[in-house]
Simulated assay, not measured.
Amino acid sequence: MDTFNEYLSKIDHPEQRARVEEVLGWVPAAFPTLAPRIAWNQPMFTDHGTFIIGFSVAKKHMAVAPERSVLNRFAADIVKSGYDHTKDLFRIPWDRPVDYELLARIIAFNIEDKADCTTFWRK
């Protein structure tokens, strides 16, 4: 979690900081091969140098960014979980629970789908 300490320290709201810390701790516990890093001032996880998932904080939600093609694939599941989405991210409102099963499926899909990817982003 040391990778994210500075990022977490900048989240003013204690409940929001705790939620983000929980999610950022859950990812490597569930997917220990992923590498944590900060890029574009946001916490993210990579696999063999390729982007898997990123997170950011906004006033009303935590944003989750798994890449556009993954959002398209999981759009119905995201809505079913009670989250809204744009073409680049989905939002987990601070007052809603985190759907860890959905996150796990998205991350597992990205790891498998990008196993042979040699670039940071999909082309």
Rank of each mutant, 00 (worst) to 15 (best):
A75Q: 12
T46H: 02
D47E: 08
V70K: 09
M62R: 13
E67V: 14
P43R: 02
R68W: 03
K59M: 01
F51S: 07
H48Q: 15
P43S: 02
F45M: 04
R68P: 03
S56M: 06
T46N: 05
T50L: 01
L71S: 05
P43T: 06
K60Q: 11
S69D: 02
V70W: 07
H61I: 12
W40I: 10
N72C: 00
T50H: 12
I52D: 02
A63G: 15
A58T: 08
F45H: 07
F55K: 02
A65I: 12
A65D: 01
N72S: 12
E67A: 14
A63V: 09
N72V: 12
Q42A: 14
M62V: 14
A58I: 06
L71F: 09
F74R: 11
P66E: 02
R68K: 12
A58G: 13
H48G: 03
G49C: 07
I53Q: 01
F45N: 04
H48I: 10
L71M: 09
V70R: 08
H48V: 12
E67C: 08
V70H: 08
I53Y: 06
G54S: 12
F45W: 03
F55P: 00
S56I: 05
F55C: 03
A76G: 06
K60E: 02
R73H: 12
F55Y: 08
P66W: 07
H61P: 09
A75R: 14
S56P: 04
S56E: 03
T50K: 13
P43A: 05
H48Y: 03
N72D: 14
N41W: 04
Q42F: 07
P43F: 09
Q42W: 05
N72G: 11
A63Q: 06
A65S: 14
I52W: 04
K59R: 15
I53L: 07
K59H: 04
F74C: 05
M62Q: 12
D47N: 11
K60F: 03
V70L: 10
M62A: 10
R73K: 15
R68H: 11
L71C: 07
H48M: 06
D47A: 11
F51C: 05
R73V: 00
S56L: 04
V64C: 12
Q42L: 14
V64R: 10
H48P: 01
A75S: 15
T50G: 10
P66F: 06
T50I: 02
F74T: 10
K59G: 02
N41H: 05
F51I: 05
R68Q: 09
A65T: 13
S69W: 01
A58D: 01
V70N: 03
E67M: 15
K59L: 02
A58C: 02
S56T: 14
Q42P: 01
A76I: 08
I53D: 00
P43M: 06
T46W: 03
D47W: 09
V70F: 10
K60V: 03
E67Y: 13
R73F: 03
L71Y: 08
I52F: 03
G49I: 09
G54V: 07
W40V: 08
P43Q: 05
Q42N: 11
G49P: 09
I52Q: 03
W40E: 11
E67F: 11
S69G: 00
A75N: 11
A58K: 10
T46K: 07
S69K: 09
N41Y: 05
E67L: 13
F55V: 04
V64P: 08
M62N: 08
V64A: 10
M44S: 07
T46Q: 08
A75E: 12
G54H: 00
V57G: 04
